[in-house]
Design a protein around this nucleic acid. Structure first.
Length: 487
RNA sequence: UCCCCUAUAGCUCAAUUGGUAGAGCGGGCGGCUGUUAACCGCCAGGUUGCUGGUUCGAGUCCAGCUGGGGGAGCCA
């Protein structure tokens, strides 16, 4: 019999620990493992004892949705003293032979020859993660342990799969990943309330002669905040590297209490030079299809679980998504569709009207009822969009784009940027902003300006869409929301 | 920030018009079984979120507070 791994238990160094078999690897190619010996390391899910002189211990190491079944014979020296006291959550390491499973439900299992318990569960009666259904709300309160459940293990693997697919997509398409700053001195990004970054003494604030807080004495010598977007910064590198993207944390101090908002979330912001809004929409469509196709290929086990327990539609929704062409309509056409819907008897709480932003109910109606799939809405009235968005020839709309998805609403928000300095300046003036604050951003329009475009993709919103999870707090390891920063 | 809902065993939930707080799961012990969120029996487990009020009597009604959820706004 081939011996794949080092036999001894106990502390081992990194290279030795690599010799342990990942459960996903054994499941992927059972024929390679049956008839060999190895080591399985993981946490107990369930234990069933048989009087035939053995116990079945289901163990997960997080590498796959399904746990592997260990068959533990009663003649092990620690059988009565330890094995029979294993409960959900215990950390163990088992050495034995991989064999074809005699039972249903798995192809390969381990016939255990020795088993070491690294850590028991102190009080099994109060261990928060029991082998039974728990509510999402309860699991949020034990976020440090919830990743041990089926649902959150699946979320974790899907999250990783999508993150890697995003980087792979950009890398394969010649984009450079840009690490834009987390701390920003631009208090003018205009994307909402910001968290202040300061080392000043709250009890003893330095004041200016006019009685204001003297930020010149603060760490950076000026008022600083956590970033609400890497866009303005990433545009600078776009003007040299042509195709760039950011993928990092973003912070919004808005008092938003919804299932779609976090105070700290991750955002992907590509920026492409020599590109217009149509190219921007193409990029968004291509990226989303690529990462969801990767998910369908790589995480079938987890998606199957989501389809069974969380959202029946999640796999078919993704399959339709990667095949179908995105619907693209203008804002003006969208308002038109909504007004026609009202004429046909559709009821909205708010009247859709050209010139004001669409309400959630309007966006929902378009993406869920009219099209039943993602829809890109472009060319919004300039007065409801940011100063940097490119003014269209009609003089009253800008080249903005929102991609709406069923069940979530806005998943992508982007635009072609205003590359003409004179137009940008008049937009800054119009909105009551100060040109001096944007001196370096304006420089980009003075030194080799070029049409360019980009968008922001909410990473957690993409995960919600892919999994059918209902609350954004359940697709990030530790959610930060108003009045909640536990863990 | 606004509107609505909600808080009972480790977890998920019951408890009629206000009248002594119960089940399933999980846990412990035993039985049975190459078992699959197994099955059968027994046992333990509660200051009903907190503070106050109404009442002979409050899990139940009222007020405030705290936590949680859903929706709206803002947005990704």
């Amino acid at each position: 019999m081939t011996r794949r791994t080092l036999p001894a238990f106990g502390l081992r160094n990194w290279s030795q620990s690599m010799a342990a078999v990942r459960i996903a690897t054994a499941f992927a190619k059972p024929a390679d493992f049956i008839g060999t010996e190895g080591i399985i390391q993981g946490w107990v899910r369930t234990r069933r004892d048989s009087k035939a002189g053995l116990s079945f211990v289901a163990v997960s190491d997080g590498s796959s949705f399904d746990p592997i079944q260990l068959v533990v014979p009663a003649d092990l020296p620690n059988y009565a003293s330890e094995v029979q006291h294993l409960t959900a959550g215990c950390a163990i390491e088992a050495q034995g032979a991989f064999v074809q499973s005699q039972g249903k439900g798995q192809s390969i299992e381990m016939q255990v020859k020795s088993l070491k318990v690294h850590g028991f569960v102190d009080d099994p009666d109060t261990y928060p993660i029991q082998p039974k259904p728990h509510s999402m709300e309860y699991l949020r309160e034990v976020a440090h342990l919830r990743v041990r459940t089926n649902t959150f293990g699946a979320v974790a693997r899907v999250r990783h799969c999508l993150a890697m697919a995003i980087h792979r997509y950009f890398h394969e398409n010649g984009f450079a990943w840009v690490h834009t700053p987390i701390i920003t001195g631009a208090d003018c990004e205009g994307a909402g309330q910001m968290f202040r970054v300061s080392t000043l003494d709250f009890v003893n604030m330095p004041k200016t002669p006019e009685g204001r807080i003297d930020f010149s004495q603060d760490f950076f010598g000026k008022e600083t905040h956590l970033t609400v977007s890497g866009q303005l910064n990433v545009e600078t590198w776009c003007m040299a590297l042509s195709k760039v993207y950011t993928f990092g944390p973003t912070f919004r101090a808005e008092n938003s209490n919804t299932s779609r908002h976090l105070a700290e979330f991750w955002m992907i912001e590509p920026e492409i030079a020599f590109a217009d809004l149509a190219a921007d929409a193409d990029l968004a469509e291509s990226l989303l299809k690529y990462i969801f196709r990767a998910l369908l290929n790589e995480r079938q086990d987890d998606l199957k679980f989501f389809a069974e327990r969380i959202d029946k539609e999640c796999i078919t929704r993704l399959e339709k998504f990667v095949e179908a062409k995105f619907e693209r309509i203008t804002y003006t056409e969208a308002i038109d569709l909504l007004e026609k819907a009202i004429a046909k008897g559709e009821k909205f709480d708010y009247q859709p009207k050209w010139g004001i932003d669409m309400q959630s109910e309007h966006e929902r109606y378009l993406t869920e009822k009219v099209f039943g799939r993602p829809v890109a809405v472009i060319n919004y009235p300039k007065d409801i969009k940011a100063f940097y968005m490119r003014l269209n020839d009609d003089g009253r709309t800008v080249a903005a784009m929102d991609i709406l998805a069923p069940g979530i609403g806005e998943i992508v928000g982007g635009s072609q940027r205003e590359e003409r300095l004179d137009v940008l300046d008049s937009r800054i003036d119009e909105m009551g902003l100060h040109k001096a604050d944007y001196w370096w951003y304006r420089d980009l329009r003075r030194y080799g300006t070029v049409p360019h475009a980009g968008f922001g993709l909410g990473f957690e919103r993409a995960i919600i869409y892919a999994t059918g999870m209902q609350n954004i707090r359940d697709v990030i390891p530790f959610a930060r929301t108003p009045k909640n920063c536990e863990f």
